[in-house]
Design a protein around this nucleic acid. Structure first.
Lengths: 178, 178
DNA sequence: CCAATAGGTCTGGTGAATGAACCTTCGTCT
DNA sequence: AGACGAAGGTTCATTCACCAGACCTATTGG
């Protein structure tokens, strides 16, 4: 969790969840993973997080079964961090929390919009497609694109620049594919 | 947020949300508020949180517009902490995160189950009523009850004991109504 | 040989969380 | 009156996590 690292006395599913993703940075790392960030250095530059903290968080998320390490080259062995099935199921809470933040705590509107890849319709509040019906759209079928109406500054790291182009969630960003 | 207290460099709605409810204890306080906890001492004993931290978090949540202070007696002036409209909209993210925690990080199953008050049907993954259809059920129409299948220890403070009885969300718990 | 890339670890300083003690106001009991 | 207790804080010393930056290792390109 955020700081004490756990809430052992809380016999509640929410407390358990927060022990896994409640620490500072953890949820932002997971969000970046949905955005297609996979490499240590990409997380580092995009989040502006201290290296030691990133190492600790990635290891914790792997240990918790939210992320898994996957080699992407052998020469000097290098790993990327990918979402597991368990991690993918965080899309719902993450999307809703993000929407809440967009409604109540953001000036200039949200930076990104999310739509159903199949039909192009913007997702509703719970992450479902109003046109296609059915339950929430799985992240692999979601396209993110920058919000044209957004006003305000932008970051200028390679990852932020890659995220300016609309792309499917979970698809590795250009920086990682280079 | 959890610790640095903000993510100013993150131009993202999620980061904004986390600045408000991402700090350790904040989301648990909000959860308790949904459960009907309103008084300082009830939060204190139910969460096992240091007093100074509780004071800081409650003030921060009030400042952020998630909670509001409402006097419940004059003699010595005493306030309760209630969810605002903005705070009520956190039900969706909170419920989903709790469900995720119940699926992936809890042993012995969840402690509480949530159902639609009107028809008694258990809520689905996004907090909607599978029987009545429509969108997510607003918290005021949700009944929580202990999970009979849950195995494991229980806390034994007055608030935990009050939460053993099934009741509507947002309804003040017995301890506060005494 | 030198520099750069990728992914870390190590270190010292700062700030926040923790638990315990203390304070204040009022109401009640004797 | 005086003692006691509840409710809601504040203050304090200690611990612990975060932070920024320097350093380390392996490999490839020039």
């Amino acid at each position: 969790m955020a700081l004490g690292t756990d809430y052992e006395l809380q016999d509640c599913a929410l407390a358990r969840a927060l022990e896994v993703v409640g620490e500072r940075w953890s949820l932002l790392i997971v969000r970046d993973a949905f955005y297609g960030v996979q490499r240590f250095n990409d997380f580092l530059t995009h989040l502006g997080i201290p290296r030691a903290v990133l190492t600790a968080r990635l290891n914790a998320l792997v240990a918790a079964g939210v992320l898994r390490r996957e080699p992407y080259q052998q020469a000097p062995l290098r790993h990327g961090y990918l979402l597991t099935e368990t991690g993918l199921e965080l899309w719902g809470p993450l999307y809703q929390l993000s929407r809440w933040g967009g409604r109540h705590a953001t000036e200039g509107g949200p930076h990104h919009l999310f739509a159903h890849a199949r039909c192009g319709t913007d997702l509703d509040l719970v992450g479902a497609c109003p046109k296609c019906g059915g339950g929430p759209v799985p992240p692999a079928e979601v396209v993110m694109r920058p919000n044209p109406a957004h006003t305000g500054g932008h970051r200028d790291d390679p990852v932020s620049r890659a995220l300016v182009r609309s792309h499917l969630l979970l698809e590795p960003i250009a920086s990682a594919a280079a």
